[in-house]
């Protein structure tokens, strides 16, 4: 061990030097910045003021859907697709924190593990820490950090508890809802909730029984519904195209509204 106990004196860079490192894409600095934002301490304001001017470039893609529908596996495939386009990819994966203890098992990245050695992919797991709405309090702040650090696209995975996940619609430009066949009829689709805000719905596990029926019933409610099998990558190119189309439609709209 080194002489000065590195544990009791953790690396504590000043905010300006931390921001400088974030802008160069230093992963340790990015991680520290996100942790500081998560603790919502006194540094938050200065950090946000430091990153926000450099933010606003990366498309933010929200991935939502029930637990087990395949959100993380879809993200794994999207990372591969965007990396093949040469893009730097940031991922924020939110899992639920225990309301009893505050503890959490953050396990989304298990499905994304063959990207953990790619220097142009940053994956961060976040606990909800008591925040409701499918994301954590600091998710929006963390997006600004990744955007300012030069990530070309940011993928945000919600906890996936279903109908109370509207917050992602206020944070992401494009919301993708991942559903699996056999989880309810079209009356479920009629209910208010995530399908209202989803721009694209992916019927994942297309190799399972009932996938085509689910596709048909959802087509009555959502403009863009696709079939995919995320474990094999089937249908992912169509999803990437649909996301791009949606992003382009926003670019066309933007000058009119603004």
């Amino acid at each position: 061990m080194s002489g000065s106990n590195p544990l009791t004196v953790p690396e504590c860079p000043t905010i300006p030097s931390l921001l400088k490192e974030v802008r160069t894409g230093n992963m340790r600095a990015i991680s520290r910045a996100i942790s500081l934002l998560e603790t919502n301490g006194p540094e938050r304001k200065a950090l946000l003021e430091g990153v926000e001017p450099f933010s606003g470039h990366a498309p933010i893609i929200g991935i939502t859907g029930y637990p087990g529908a395949g959100k993380s596996t879809v993200i794994d495939q999207l990372i591969t697709a965007y990396r093949s386009q040469g893009k730097k990819v940031g991922v924020l994966a939110v899992d639920i924190s225990s309301s009893l203890t505050g503890g959490a098992i953050l396990g989304d990245r298990i499905r994304m593990q063959h990207h953990s050695l790619d220097e142009r992919v940053y994956i961060r797991s976040m606990g909800t820490r008591g925040h409701r709405g499918g994301l954590s309090m600091a998710t929006r702040d963390a997006i600004h950090v990744l955007d300012a650090a030069g990530y070309d696209v940011v993928l945000v995975e919600t906890i996936g508890m279903g109908q109370e996940e509207g917050e992602i619609a206020r944070i992401a430009q494009t919301v993708v809802d991942v559903v699996a066949p056999g989880l309810g009829d079209d009356v479920q689709a009629m209910k208010a909730g995530i399908l209202e805000v989803a721009h694209i719905v992916v019927v994942n596990k297309a190799d399972h029984a009932g996938a085509h029926e689910t596709l048909q019933s959802l087509r009555e409610w959502v403009p863009e519904v696709l079939l995919a099998t995320a474990t094999t990558g089937e249908g992912i190119p169509s999803l990437v195209e649909a996301i791009t189309r949606h992003q382009q439609s926003l670019e066309v709209e933007a000058p009119i509204s603004g």
């Binding site: 203890t101 505050g102 503890g103 959490a104 098992i105 396990g107 298990i110 797991s125 606990g127």
Partner: peptide, 18 residues
């Protein structure tokens, strides 16, 4: 988890680099 820790669980077969 039950004692309030955020556990990032990586699963099996990780390399030291990962």
């Amino acid at each position: 988890r039950d004692s309030g820790v955020e556990v990032i669980y990586t699963g099996l077969h990780q390399t030291p680099e990962q």
